[in-house]
Nucleic acid binder design. Structure first.
Lengths: 157, 157
DNA sequence: AAAAAGTGGTCAATCAAGTTGACTATATTT
DNA sequence: AAATATAGTCAACTTGATTGACCACTTTTT
């Protein structure tokens, strides 16, 4: 696929390809660091867990999946050593899911890699253009979801 | 989720959200037109099928999935009336998958809706900024995949 | 020309990640 | 105190992918 082909793409396809380009690079590099058992959805989960932990229901709402699915994902992440369930301080029914030390390692690694990717993009298109890109995407996401917040505004792919 | 929250997001999350914003709107509107049985992946499939049809192996390569998975998807789309399998003109092992009349209807509808979405975005950020956005994304996709084309450059989400 | 290796497509079994429904324990409302 | 709602888990099922086996046909090798 050449640049000519790419430039004929509609914006939606371009967004899809640029997202997968960047998420693929992120997870390739996490794999090299020994975090090969982390999948993209876990990144969004960690976003909701940090910095103070999160309940299962909150995660389900944030990710747009059922609490049962969250429960399975937490089983997996707990088995892999990234999170643990703690008793909720005030609600005896609830648990709060918090990062372990290893969990924090992967979050820090993720941030570092994303910053590096963004830095490389700045080298390609310049600080100003990257700033504009981010502003414009923010506007598009905001305007495109205006009337149906918050249920439809989730990281889904 | 407010615009403030959005503006704190890293570029990767922003790309994810803007892609899902636009793909969600596309499929909501296709549903309203009676094409509720079409899912996002089918759009990328149609891209490869048009205009001259495509073999299963080509589709599998393009989409980055196995030929068995393609075969099942084609079963589904054939059942729904969007495509048909024809004998390959020169290779008696092969089939070519082509769009039916209904298949063309959905492709045309998709293009119309994507153009309208893009038009609305022009109203928000202007022709110039949209043009820059597309150019920049094209550069990012191209540069980000330079050394591993074509296997990693696929519409995946 | 015959034999060997490769390719396009499908069938079957399995896996992964989600779903719905049922249930327990605890909280909240009436 | 009783009724209702909520947080989390277990089990069964669905969906969309996978791997492996296979047939029919094509291409390459000998």
């Amino acid at each position: 696929m050449t640049q000519e082909v790419l430039s004929e793409l509609d914006l939606t396809s371009l967004l899809s390809l640029s997202f997968s380009t960047s998420i693929n690079e992120l997870h390739d590099r996490l794999s090299e660091l020994g975090f090969g058992d982390i999948r993209p959805v876990h990144g969004f989960m960690f976003k909701c867990i940090t910095p103070n932990g999160s309940t299962g229901v909150e995660l389900a709402e944030y990710l747009g999946i059922t609490k049962q699915a969250v429960s399975k994902m937490v089983d997996y992440l707990e088995k892999c050593g990234y999170v643990i369930r703690k008793d909720h301080p005030t609600d005896k029914r609830g648990k709060i899911i918090v990062l372990t030390e290893r969990g924090w390692l992967v979050v820090k690694a993720k941030e570092k890699i994303l910053t590096e990717i963004e830095q490389r993009w700045i080298e390609k298109i310049g600080t100003q253009r990257l700033q504009m890109l981010k502003e414009d995407l923010t506007i598009l996401v905001y305007e495109g979801n205006e009337d149906r917040l918050p249920t439809r505004l989730r990281p889904v792919w």
